[in-house]
Write a protein that binds this DNA or RNA. Structure first.
Lengths: 201, 201
DNA sequence: CTCTCTCTAGAACGTTCACTCTAGGGCGGT
DNA sequence: ACCGCCCTAGAGTGAACGTTCTAGAGAGAG
């Protein structure tokens, strides 16, 4: 089964820029945007302050934007991979929730989604970063809606249902992490599955 | 119609402790736990450092715990108020989402829920605070399940559906705030409503 | 070899942070 | 009047923050 984490572990052979982005994404999952110091990032990525500011002249905010956008794309691709392999849209949704639950438990209850973690923190204080998170959520919703339409669900229903799925996912991350209980994500996945199944003609 | 915000505005006649908690809750809604400095709190509450540490000797972490617990109780009571007034569980859920949407828009897209805002930030770094958020979410889920059972929904279904409702709410806050669009909460509310209606005998 | 350009290195800077500590205001009891 | 106690007041402290800046390593071109 495919894992629901696109994050690669630190790889000394990766480019410095890639190591910085990957390490930052993982730190955001643990302690969010403001909880992550640049020093944490340079230590985890085995990079220096100079390198960070070379690749991201705008500093921490620009780096965060890159993390949000690149992680967002990776998750969408992962969903499309799972969606393509699943026999139905309902099964695709269930698979994705189960994969997320597994990642959550295996990582010791780090946040599964660095984008959602950042989104609430900065929505009122960094408008560019807020817009980046919104764009990512929108791309996910559109990808999910496309998979629902592929099963014959009408366009309008697909759009509303896709929004529900993404909201359930993000809300599920909040609840599962607070309770330190991955089963919550699996329970929500089952509900999402039957919701989609009921709408499938 | 009842508003979905239990937060009172600053009132010079309120006790110092109450002013501190209220101001902190509002600051958490804007900028989260780590984004809120003690200086912000003393300024907003018109209190001094000495007062804060008098009432909350454990500092910022203890104050945050009080905010989470007290705000959590207030929201649960608000839900029960709305749930009691509504003609059905489905209507109660719809009313609550609509109220939340209104608060979101009227506040200029501050977060509606300081608890959810804090939960993701601190889940991996402050276990007491994490446990407090989990307890609040649990009390909400139980309150929602009780209202569903009151409409004749069987116990197990009520429990699962209540979890879905709370997850949709928290996920909805994340999405609506990122998009700066209260309509998202209303759309999710309509979906939640028909979900509950479909389960009602 | 030398020149050039990209990237690395990390000390230094000024700001802001949570928190501590000493001092004093003001009210209720006697 | 006086005392005791609860609360307010805010300057001070050391640590940690994001960012800047100067210096140099290393590879490729000529």
């Amino acid at each position: 089964m495919a894992t629901t984490s696109p994050a690669r572990s630190e790889d000394a052979s990766a480019t410095t820029r890639q190591r910085i982005v990957t390490a930052t994404a993982e730190l955001f999952r643990r302690q969010g945007y403001r909880g992550t110091a640049l020093k944490d990032i340079t230590r985890a990525a085995e990079a220096t302050t100079g390198s960070v500011y070379h690749f991201f002249p705008g500093g921490k905010a620009e780096l965060a934007r890159a993390v949000v956008i690149e992680t967002g794309v990776a998750y969408r691709e992962l969903f499309e991979l799972i969606a393509g392999a699943a026999g139905s849209a309902a099964q695709a949704v269930a698979d994705f929730f189960d994969g997320a639950a597994e990642v959550l438990a295996q990582s010791g209850y780090l946040d599964v989604c660095p984008i959602g973690a950042v989104a609430r923190e900065v929505a009122s204080t960094d408008d560019e970063l807020r817009a980046a998170t919104a764009q990512v959520f929108d791309s996910w919703t559109k990808a999910a809606a496309a998979r629902l339409r592929a099963d014959g669900i009408d366009s309008r229903t697909a759009r509303e249902l896709a929004l529900v799925v993404v909201a359930l996912l993000e809300g599920g991350f909040t609840l599962a992490r607070a309770h330190r209980d991955a089963a919550i994500l699996r329970r929500l996945g089952r509900q999402a599955r039957s919701l989609v199944a009921a709408a499938t003609p």
